[in-house]
Design a protein around this nucleic acid. Sequence first.
DNA 1: ATTATGCTTGGCAAAATGGCCAACTAGGTT
DNA 2: AACCTAGTTGGCCATTTTGCCAAGCATAAT
Lengths: 110, 110
Amino acid sequence: MSAAKQARAAKRATVIKAMAHPSRLLCLEALMAGELCVADLTSLVGADISTVSKHLALLRSVGLVTIEKRGLQVFYQIACPCLGTFFECMDDLASSARSSKRRAAARCQC
Amino acid sequence: MSAAKQARAAKRATVIKAMAHPSRLLCLEALMAGELCVADLTSLVGADISTVSKHLALLRSVGLVTIEKRGLQVFYQIACPCLGTFFECMDDLASSARSSKRRAAARCQC
DNA sequence: ATTATGCTTGGCAAAATGGCCAACTAGGTT
DNA sequence: AACCTAGTTGGCCATTTTGCCAAGCATAAT
């Protein structure tokens, strides 16, 4: 029983950890408007292309994005359309951190 | 423009990173059924109480939970009711990782 | 065939995280 | 006052994460 819950928590953590980085969130956000290749995402993030490639590989390994190779390029695409709503909810939390219970709850309208 | 997006991504990452650990997810999940004190959560997680206390402090620092002190105990409470839906979505992703785009998208119904 | 382009992978150093023990604080009890 | 009881905080070490460079790989162009 508890073992099953811990296993589930571990799986969830794997996916959530994959999102838990500014560069990776930036990529996810950009991809929500449509697919982009690695070069596009690299200029967006502003890091070395190898770094961005590894970030994307991580997102892909947990299923948050999928790829499609066309010619020399690799296009990354969002696999989970629900992220938008969730991100807005995170924004609300971020701006009401450490506030009273009532205020935080009021802001969260998911 | 891009600076604003990066700032937003950083804030989001702070909140999401706070969730990105099995023990913290276990706590959040348990708290969704109602408030619990640190001792309760500690036996649930199965780690040292000091470790759990630090996990909870982190969740609180980003506004995911709030506290209420009563007597000697500190009761932790969920601040963001939307987490349930999101977690289910993560479960779907976790079980369809590395699958084709079509399958992954089909499973995500958020 | 050679070269170029787009991306991935290996390796390494710096930084951040996680977990335990020990020490401390705040609120109750005797 | 002395003593519990419930949590928090500091310190330390082990592990993980992050990011750059260099090297490798696959596809396309010349």
